[in-house]
Design a protein around this nucleic acid. Sequence first.
DNA 1: TTCACCTGTCAGTCTCAACTTACACATGGA
DNA 2: TCCATGTGTAAGTTGAGACTGACAGGTGAA
Lengths: 121, 121
Amino acid sequence: MQAMNSEELLAFLAAVGHAQRIRIITELATGPLYVSELARRLGVSRPLLYMHLERLEKAGLVIGRLELSDDGKALKYFELAPFDVQLNVDTILAAARLDGADAPPDGTGEAGKHSPKGTPQ
Amino acid sequence: MQAMNSEELLAFLAAVGHAQRIRIITELATGPLYVSELARRLGVSRPLLYMHLERLEKAGLVIGRLELSDDGKALKYFELAPFDVQLNVDTILAAARLDGADAPPDGTGEAGKHSPKGTPQ
DNA sequence: TTCACCTGTCAGTCTCAACTTACACATGGA
DNA sequence: TCCATGTGTAAGTTGAGACTGACAGGTGAA
């Protein structure tokens, strides 16, 4: 898993920092599952599960693919994506440093500081 | 940093999975700061900062201590606590497995649930 | 045709964390 | 005395994310 900037890191952490999504991950750890089956196992409504899966997919934690079962039904399978993130002060600072690096070449002169879009608050 | 159960892991991830709190961490990386000064640097209201710091402290990411300045003012200093968490499928499963381990011996069978009384760290 | 599955999405409601404003109180110095 | 600076907390508002229910499809089998 390559280096993430702070935006990607944040998406990753926010995605995994939720009880339901942790449960999804542990359930998928046993192998790929299609949405309806997963919803049944977790006791969660399907639309809600969709939302969580979407978020997990955007953060790169799971991968979904549409498959055709033997009897012709379309099944949306999800499986865990390999991920491995070390989380300490250095890796967080490294992520913040990447933001400055891939910022637009129009240098507004803020090398050390990290100011996202417009100044919040 | 010793092993965390899923409740502690969740608190940790939810704490660090927030843009403002990431900014707090990067700011504290340069050294301890007292609350008002930190609020000024981040451009954040002090009560709001309190909330974030409280959350970070509960998750074990920062440590606060009350200090007396030279001129007798009470200053609440916060500094980063050393933390290092490896985040992948195995570590998440390991955290979930801990829940089952320190569950009450009267097996009610709900290993995945979170126990209401927080375990002190 | 009806049933039992599945996918995908919309329009809501609700809950809670995030955030603001405002207090009370303490200290040292002008 | 008032002012500037600090801590700490108790309200209230708001907004995003979590969650529900209902819908429109599509398939294969009885």
